[in-house]
Amino acid sequence: MSTIPKVELHLHIEGAAPPAFIRGLAQEKGVNLDGVFNDDGSYKFESFNQFLSVYEAACTVLTGPEEFARLTTAVLEQSIAQGVIYTEAFLSPDFCGGGDVGAWREYMNAMQEAAAKLPEIEMRGIVTCIRHFGPDQAKVAAKCAAETAGGFITGFGMGGDEMVGTQGDYAYSFDMAREAGLRLTTHAGEWGGADSVWQAVRDLKVDRVGHGVQAIDDLALVDHLAEHGIVLEVCPGSNVALGVYPDWRSHPIEKLRERGVPVTVSTDDPPFFHTTLSAEYDRLADTFGWDDEVVREVNVTAAKAAFCDTVTREKLLKTLEPTT
């Protein structure tokens, strides 16, 4: 495992919940989560749609700010153990107060306060709408984002089922977030092909693309991403676990990097995919020969692409400088 400090840009706060944490909350609340876990205690799913269903079922025990504060602590402690010094987590108002701005603010404050108690790591929040909840509900999430922009909340994005509608259907919400000063990202090119990445770049004018790996199928797009410095939040273990690619050798992250596309490495929903950020880099080293120089380069790319203030960015880049 590389000892180089790590920067993670693509992490869903609920999807990073340790299974034992969710089971414990379910027991405390007397909630039946049959079908959510395998016999060994891990999350149970066999397809992307099942993954979404299990994800949302697990979220049913996260019913208040206090639970999200505890969740934040559990997730960040996992990250610290992997050498992560900075993380951006996707936070959805749909799961945090149902989109009510006042309730969302209480959830957000609880997560921010929990994060502040762990000085080993910096955390920022990216408010995220859920694509398969539709464009109107996305506007609700965008309003929550705009009302709490600044400081802890530094970005706006979109997750969920990439096959529902088009990126452009959500342009109003992204414009609202942009006007509030938030940086933008969206899931694209995980399932929707290279065209979905074009949509994200053209119609939403995002700073970064979540996943984006299917851009490799359109070399004109690859060159566009490289030329314009549009950063991909790549999650190789997630892509292999969900069947986007059959194995690590087939994954395009190295081809994208070789063609000049700025790539970063993240875990997405690590307990679901039986991975950690250290494990991701270990597999990349085994598969593509990534050494410490490449690992440092990728994390410097992530630090430069982070949706954070200048002081924080400079601190991260200083920490990532070689020690010898």
Score class of each variant (00 low, 15 high):
Cys59Gln: 13
Glu67Phe: 05
Leu11Val: 11
Ala69Asp: 01
Trp248Pro: 02
Ala145Trp: 14
Asp175Glu: 15
Asn32Pro: 00
Val311Ser: 13
Val36Lys: 00
Pro252Leu: 12
Asp207Ala: 14
Leu118Trp: 00
Ala146Thr: 13
Ser47Trp: 06
Gly260Leu: 06
Glu254Trp: 05
Arg178Ile: 06
Arg257Gln: 09
Gln199Leu: 01
Leu25Ile: 06
Leu225Thr: 03
Ala200Ile: 13
Pro271Asp: 12
Ala89Glu: 04
Thr323Leu: 11
Phe48Asp: 02
Gln112His: 09
Val206Gln: 03
Phe48Gln: 11
Glu162Thr: 08
Ile230Leu: 10
Ala114Glu: 05
Gly97Glu: 13
Pro322Asp: 06
Pro5Gln: 08
Phe51Cys: 07
Gln27Ile: 07
His187Lys: 09
His274Trp: 03
Tyr86Met: 05
His132Phe: 10
His274Ile: 00
Asn299Leu: 08
Thr186Phe: 01
Ala26Val: 04
Thr63Asp: 14
Asn299Pro: 12
Thr310Gly: 00
Val240Gly: 07
Glu66Val: 11
Asn109Ala: 06
Gly210Lys: 01
Asp203Arg: 02
Met176Thr: 14
Val36Thr: 14
Ser42Pro: 06
Glu254Ile: 00
Gln199Val: 01
Val263Leu: 11
Phe95Cys: 07
Val298Ala: 05
Ala141Tyr: 01
Lys6Gly: 04
Thr72Trp: 08
Arg124Ile: 08
Asn32His: 03
Asp195Arg: 12
Thr264Cys: 05
Glu293Pro: 00
Phe68Gln: 06
Glu46Arg: 09
Val295Lys: 00
Met123Leu: 15
Leu118Val: 07
Gln137Met: 14
Val222Tyr: 01
Asp39Leu: 08
Ala145Val: 09
Ala200Phe: 08
Gly193Ser: 09
Glu162Leu: 07
Pro270Glu: 06
Leu9Cys: 11
Asp247Cys: 14
Leu242Glu: 07
Thr87Arg: 13
Thr72Met: 12
Glu46Asn: 13
Val298Leu: 13
Val311Asn: 03
Thr87Asn: 13
Ser53Gly: 12
Lys255Arg: 14
Leu184Val: 12
Gly189Asp: 10
Leu320Gly: 11
Thr73Lys: 15
Gly125Ile: 07
Phe51His: 03
Gly30His: 04
Ala81Met: 04
Pro246His: 05
Met1Lys: 09
Asn32Lys: 10
Trp104Thr: 13
Thr148Trp: 02
Leu76Met: 15
Ala57Pro: 00
Gly15Gln: 01
His251Leu: 05
Phe133Asp: 04
Glu56Met: 10
Asp169Ser: 11
Ala180Cys: 04
Thr323Pro: 00
Ser42Ala: 13
Ala215His: 01
Leu320Asn: 12
Met163Ile: 02
Arg105Ile: 02
Arg124Gly: 00
Glu280Gln: 11
Leu25Asp: 01
Leu277Ser: 08
Ile153Val: 15
Lys255Ser: 14
Ser47Glu: 12
Phe152Ile: 02
Ala149Asp: 05
Ala116Arg: 15
Gly125Asn: 08
Ala16Met: 07
Tyr172Phe: 08
Glu14Tyr: 03
Ser79Trp: 06
Ala142His: 10
Glu28Arg: 15
Gly159Asp: 15
Val36Glu: 09
Arg257Glu: 10
Ala103Pro: 06
Phe21Met: 02
Asp309Cys: 03
Glu190Cys: 04
Ala220Arg: 15
Ala200Asn: 13
Asp286Met: 07
Leu320Ser: 09
Ile80Tyr: 03
Lys117Tyr: 06
Ile130Leu: 15
Lys44Ala: 15
Gly212Trp: 03
Ala57Glu: 12
Val261Tyr: 03
Thr312Gln: 11
Ala114Arg: 01
Asp291Gln: 10
